[in-house]
Structure formats: C-alpha cells, structure tokens
C-alpha cells in the first residue's frame, strides 16, 4: 500500500504543479502588455485570418515546414503521435470510455512507435548537425531522454507480454485518484518507471522549454492582426508617456 500512497501523492502533486504552473504562466503572458504591432508579415488583416494562421501553425507547423523538412518531419511525427497516445490514454481515466477514444485505440497503440522514432530523429540531429550540437545544452538532451524513456516504457508494457501490467487495476487506481476513492497500484516495475517519468515530465513542464506549448499562442509575431494603420494600438505604459507631456 505504501507504494500506492507514494504514487498517489506524486500524481496529485504533479497535477497541481502542472495545472497551477501553467495557469500562472498563462496569466503572466496574458497580462504582459504588447505595446507595438510586430506581426511577421505578410500577416492576415482580419481576426479570422489570424485564427487560420494560428491553426496552421499548431496543426501542421507551417513555419517549421518552411524552415527545415527534417526537423519538421521528426517534430510533427513526435507531436501528433503523442497526441494520439495521450488521447488513447483517456481510457484509463474515463468510465465508461468515450466512443471516440475507443476508435483511436488501435492507432494510439502503434503511435508510440512514431513518438519514439520522431524523438530519436530529433535527438540524432543534436549529435549529427554541428550547428544544433552547438546550441544544445544538457537539459535539451535530458528532455529528449525523458520523453524517449516514457515512450519506450509504454511500448514495452504494450508489446512485451512479460512487462504487461494489470490494466484493470491501474484504471481503478487512476479513477480512484479522480474520485478520491483510493485503490492500490499494481506494483509492476515497468509501470512504476513509466508513471514516475510521466509525473516528472508534468512537474517540469511549467519551468522548462515545454512552455513553448502555451507560448506559441501568445507570440505577437504570429497572433497579431496586420492593421496598424486602421486601428491605434496603445498600451497602458505607453499612454502614460503621452499624458506626461
């Protein structure tokens, strides 16, 4: 029971840090003024156009595609297989399982391989391309190692019979966390490693470069409408300069 307790506390803490940290960050971004119009042009001249631009950035990584096909391939592969994997995992937190989660299940299972492949491709670039090697710090490597380890431990549990866990018991544990009706966690080593790594990832999310996820929504070069001649933008601190004259 003690291991279950440790993991229960760990997941409550990780969730609190992830959610609290992200809310804090998003509040800081939202409250920081944008005193000047700085969209990277050509930029849309309407709000709808901007929404479409952002949608392309977030779904197909448009700028990255323009930039470098290898990074785009590995990066996109990783992010979208990870999305599938995350959605598939909803089955461990919902009862009954939503029908569309069931639909994703067969793809989600194999998407783990895509995740690992994309991540390994990105990691290889950190060694093979001298420019990328130069800009990589220890944390950049560790972040990839963490994500790769999460993907591989997950795949091992799915595809190697000896490392399978009692998935029904795991689901009971997770639902127990959600409904404050605590249940024991199956004490399988691969599961415990996997969950430990996931909790680590959740906790470092709001204090690391993973902030690119909320950040992209707040990037003025992408989310501003190109209409400076038609609409006057004036931030509060800049307006003070005017009134002091």
């Amino acid at each position: 029971m003690s291991v279950s307790l440790v993991y229960a506390v760990l997941f409550y803490a990780a969730t609190a840090i992830l959610v609290g940290g992200l809310i804090y960050r998003i509040r800081v971004y939202a409250r920081t003024p944008v005193p000047l119009k700085i969209p990277t042009t050509p930029a849309p001249t309407t709000r709808t156009g901007v929404l479409f631009r952002m949608f392309r950035e977030i779904t197909v990584f448009e700028s990255l595609f323009k930039s470098n096909k290898w990074i785009w391939l590995f990066g996109w592969l990783f992010h979208f297989t990870m999305l599938l994997v995350l959605l598939r995992h909803l089955r461990y937190f919902t009862h009954p399982v939503w029908f569309w989660v069931d639909l994703i299940q067969p793809f989600g299972i194999y998407a783990g391989f895509g995740m690992a492949a994309g991540l390994l491709g990105l990691w290889a670039r950190r060694f093979l391309v001298d420019r990328v090697r130069y800009i990589s710090s220890l944390s950049d490597h560790l972040m990839l190692i963490l994500l790769i380890a999460i993907a591989i431990t997950g795949l091992l549990m799915s595809f190697v019979p000896e490392w399978r866990t009692d998935i029904v018991a795991l689901k009971a544990f997770m639902l127990g966390l959600l409904y404050f009706d605590w249940q024991p966690l199956p004490e399988d080593p691969m599961l415990m490693i996997h969950l430990g790594l996931v909790a680590t990832l959740m906790m470092i999310f709001p204090i690391s470069k993973l902030l690119h996820a909320p950040g992209v929504f707040f990037s003025p070069t992408r989310n501003q409408i190109d209409n400076p001649r038609e609409k006057r933008l004036l931030s509060a601190w800049a307006a003070k300069l005017e009134s002091s004259e």
């Binding site: 971004y29 944008v34 700085i38 990255l64 990105l122 990328v132 800009i135 950049d140």
Partner: peptide
Amino acid sequence: LTTKYRGLKVFLDSCVKCGACTDK
C-alpha cells in the same frame, strides 16, 4: 523589459533549440 513586452517574455521562455533558425 520582460514585464513591458509580452513578445520578449514569450520569446525568452519558448525556444526549444530545434535548430530551424540556425542556417537562416
């Protein structure tokens, strides 16, 4: 400056060192 310019703050936090800009 990071409290006066949202762009600066977001740019400083968001870089993942992907390398897309390195040859631009």
